[in-house]
Design a protein around this nucleic acid. Sequence first.
DNA 1: ATACGATCTGACATCGATGTCAAGCACCTG
DNA 2: CAGGTGCTTGACATCGATGTCAGATCGTAT
Lengths: 346, 346
Amino acid sequence: MKTITIKDVAARAGVSPKTVSRVINSESYVRPELRATVQKVVEELGYRPNAFARELSSSRSFLLGLFFDDPASPYAADLQRGALARCRELSYHLVVEQLDRECAGWLEECEASLRAVRLGGAVLTPPLCDWEELLDLFERYAVPVVRISPGDDLERTSRVEMDDRGAAREMTEQLLALGHRDIAFVQGNPTHHAAARRLEGFRAAMAAAGLPVPASRALQGDFTFRSGLEAAERLLGGGERPSAVFAANDEMALAILVAAMRIGIAVPEQLSIAGFDDSAIARMAWPQLSTVRQPNFEMAATAVDLLTHPQRAAGSTTPETCLLPHAVVMRASTAAAAGAESAALS
Amino acid sequence: MKTITIKDVAARAGVSPKTVSRVINSESYVRPELRATVQKVVEELGYRPNAFARELSSSRSFLLGLFFDDPASPYAADLQRGALARCRELSYHLVVEQLDRECAGWLEECEASLRAVRLGGAVLTPPLCDWEELLDLFERYAVPVVRISPGDDLERTSRVEMDDRGAAREMTEQLLALGHRDIAFVQGNPTHHAAARRLEGFRAAMAAAGLPVPASRALQGDFTFRSGLEAAERLLGGGERPSAVFAANDEMALAILVAAMRIGIAVPEQLSIAGFDDSAIARMAWPQLSTVRQPNFEMAATAVDLLTHPQRAAGSTTPETCLLPHAVVMRASTAAAAGAESAALS
DNA sequence: ATACGATCTGACATCGATGTCAAGCACCTG
DNA sequence: CAGGTGCTTGACATCGATGTCAGATCGTAT
């Protein structure tokens, strides 16, 4: 199959390649009739400019990079769907990269990648959105970056985020409204800053209600199912157990749920459980998990928007921020605390 | 940051760019000493050839496409991890594309993509590995294709697969060995050919045991959790219920599990449940799902191998087949049938 | 009529690599 | 010694687009 190049279009339209280039890039200074003619030929031939050639000559690239730490998590999957959807609307393409900080030479390898494939922009997801060396790298290569839910150096790049703190606070308030007083929190991976903000939100709500949060009620987890199981063991294994557990993501919440069932604790009658993310698995559990809907899809799509929309007007550099709305979703894994006079539902 | 080009290397090594090109492509006819010198300069400068320029001049591309129908499924996530891992080993890069057959003009859009971004190869996952128009398209553009678990036209391209039929048969045999006689099967999405093969395996095992499979025991599903719930409703809602259910993937198995718990059927005491895929969620359920481990990660990695390893020796065209091993994994969601004298464990 | 700016257009070099080809050289062979 | 043959190297064109710049055209103010 012969490739259709800009020359083919030019020849057929009776103009020079440069003029065709002007038309497809909607530059000014082309006579309207000519523009129309060229436009028509482009359609007829179904011509698409070769992205590689374009990037070579203009160092403007139509490839965006999506960088993950763990591309297999449901969270990553949602982000990817969002980025992908927007990319195709804009006829950009998405190159997925996985980075592992444990792996020696990751930075060099990433740099090598950048040299080999010049990207038009990069979306950095947690936790690597906070790896300083990585930000430096992109800066050196002048690759525009948008970060999702970053924790540090907020002004350094454009970013897309949600109000993790507020959302966690709201969820906690819901639990309080259900009459729970002894609530435990299972923290997320400490390298994700969002994890810390969720804990803050929890603490804030508890403090506002005048309730203490002893160390034994703020367990460390790392967003994995396994870490949730470990937390559950400490929490439900012996001693007095809380009447509700709020986990910083759904996978850990699910682990608490599974552990509870294994021991024979009824959910939500004896124990309320809430998660965070509203990932697909939240609805695949029984009972279905109460959780916070995080707009992952939209966040990634917005990130792509920021990368592609030339906000160059401002001389290329006012990092923008987009705050996307969340929603607390109460399902069946939470209920009024046993023996509590049901508090007013705010 | 100034980009390091082949000329920089050439100048520093005191040779022509062409010679550097020869070295980095390990072509023959370069004096060993010279080769070493150039090699050294390449290292010193950390030179990486620009993938775009390379593709432009040689029409050999270092970008592979990974094509999905639904990139958010756990199955897709596993495949992607595998492909990604292998790509980075080989310094290839992975462009992810999502295709939706419902979306009008999908084929044209895909063609436009191919023209814009010339791919060095494509990995097609189910179900789009069986879309004939798509195969035609790649053939027209001479893009090498490897399909994962295709159903039709097997000889048309290289492929990577597992023995779905055999695996389903083995799992069924396990259930039979546990004393189950009334076993229901929940089928997968009929557009995935693997779904049909799994059903065949089930039927074969049942037939071998001299057991009938009435229509009411082979329900239609489509691999989604929701379809599993619907199947469960018909299966457990009323009338005589089976003693075991084998679902064609884990998500549907999980749905059966959830439905059973909701109605108060004890698993595995009153109902055994088996899934297929061994996706992450199989271990996040309680009880943990018995399932078939499908080597998704390895399958995708192998697909990348096939695409990149120049099996050009054979004049470019003996499609290869790789059959990867599976494993039946019995966990806690299955047990001996109630009241059955435990049959011999084969 | 002349000059001038604004609009249009195309020739040509360029991006960074590889394909082609021919030249240079050493080593045989007859 | 003429004439291969095989190895080694670089000059130059090329891939498909865009940047630069100069030339052409037109209307209009001087």
